[in-house]
Design a protein around this nucleic acid. Structure first.
Lengths: 237, 237
DNA sequence: ACCTTAACTTGATCCTAGTCAACTTAAAGA
DNA sequence: TCTTTAAGTTGACTAGGATCAAGTTAAGGT
């Protein structure tokens, strides 16, 4: 979410262009991503099937609901949201994805995407054709193991989300959301107490099943209570 | 949920005792469960690692939150609920599991269970030691494929649940819950319009983030509107 | 069959968060 | 730069569902 530096956007873009060619073995996300636990040779083989497209910009689609499922996507920089569009034009936000997170795992079984994925903040994304990943994971047991772990992690994450929405109060939900965000940022080596939100109040509200106005009021209240400082999209816990 | 026949409970038990020894290849759930798409020989190999314990009764635990993860569990008959216990004694119901459904997929990554699984209705359950399943899936590519599908299916299911909870109105939630139940029963060859609920109003409310009283009122209202007939736990759509 | 306890239902009241509306601020485009 | 539009904030009002309370029904145990 807007991490590397809000003001220096041009510089950021240049960095992305360089970073995008980085092989898995040199990628800083290796501990969060597919290569975890693989031998250097196996990482090279994985590297061979990963496609690195050029940076995507706000509003670009990784895929749209209903499209045939072909690849998984890994966020390298920037941020992406997934959401289920409803026929009437509304949408339900399903998740916000930070660097190191994998998108598309829900589509393996159905073979088509049931949600759309859209870039929030200029993002570099690795594309991993699933059929090739599956073939490789037959040959590389530790990759299979890692795949099971990743899929399971996603299930556990969804479960936690259900738990969060189980909490009734709007206050609890927003607090839990901010804390979860903070933890995810820390794991990526970014400040867990000082960050920019890449999503709008509307999107936060939609995600947490709250009205925009409620989200706005809660930010104000939290600030009044001294829990955080908020300036537009800049959050300071 | 209470399917084969509410009144003839003793008969039901006898059937369960017999059914529990049925090998995977003769199991009626084969199309829903792990063996899907496997060759007969591979089903036999899978069969070799599946443990069939004797029937469990209402209130029995498959596992408790915090326990080490060793096995996946497949419901053969009866029903099971999973829930996250909170330290203060409360709990959040995470799911109700019908025959053919697999429990424990969220624990693979963490290697311990973050929820508890408890029998609602006298149940036969297959236990599949995960480490052995993983070994076997290295040797049997189609089993690996099926595992990816199952894990993905679980993610898609959780996603749909998030979507359901995104719907704000209590009415929508209960209706969606009953319809989803109905569909799952149909896929198992049971009546989608005439069934017994194996869970209490309290558990339904907890699952849908509604108060018990609201659930009760909604059942009454739906009946008044002629959408269904409800007698205690017996539902007729 | 009885008693005890838990599950469920129904009614009355309250409160949280949603809705409606007006205004402010910031970003994007000509 | 100015204009236009989208995003965010704040207030007033409302409604849906939670909570509190009391009563009913059914199940489980002896």
């Amino acid at each position: 979410m807007n991490f590397p530096g809000h003001p220096a956007l041009q510089e950021h873009k240049v960095i992305s262009f360089e970073a995008i060619r980085v092989a898995c073995k040199n990628c800083t996300l290796t501990a969060l991503c597919l290569p975890m636990g693989l031998t250097p040779e196996d990482v090279d083989r994985l590297d061979g099937i990963v496609r690195r497209n050029r940076p995507l910009h706000r509003g670009d689609f990784l895929f749209r609901a209903g499209e045939r499922f072909r690849s998984l996507y890994v966020v390298k920089t920037g941020s992406v949201k997934t959401y289920a569009p409803s026929p009437e034009g509304g949408e339900q936000v399903l998740g916000f994805h930070l660097p190191g997170e994998i998108i598309g795992l829900d589509a393996i079984e159905r073979e088509f995407h049931l949600c759309s994925a859209r870039v929030l903040e200029t993002a570099a994304v690795c594309e991993v054709p699933f059929s090739r990943l599956e073939e490789l994971s037959i040959l590389v047991p530790s990759l299979q193991h890692q795949m099971y772990r990743l899929l399971s992690k996603e299930i556990a994450h969804d479960t936690e989300m259900l738990l969060l929405l189980g909490k009734k109060s709007a206050e609890d939900r927003l607090a839990a959301f901010l804390l979860s965000l903070s933890q995810r940022l820390r794991r990526r080596g970014l400040s867990p107490t000082d960050f920019y939100l890449s999503m709008s109040r509307h999107e936060i509200g939609n995600y947490l099943s709250l009205a925009v106005e409620t989200v706005s009021r809660l930010f104000t209240r939290f600030q009044d209570e001294g829990l955080l400082k908020v300036d537009r999209k800049h959050i300071l816990l």
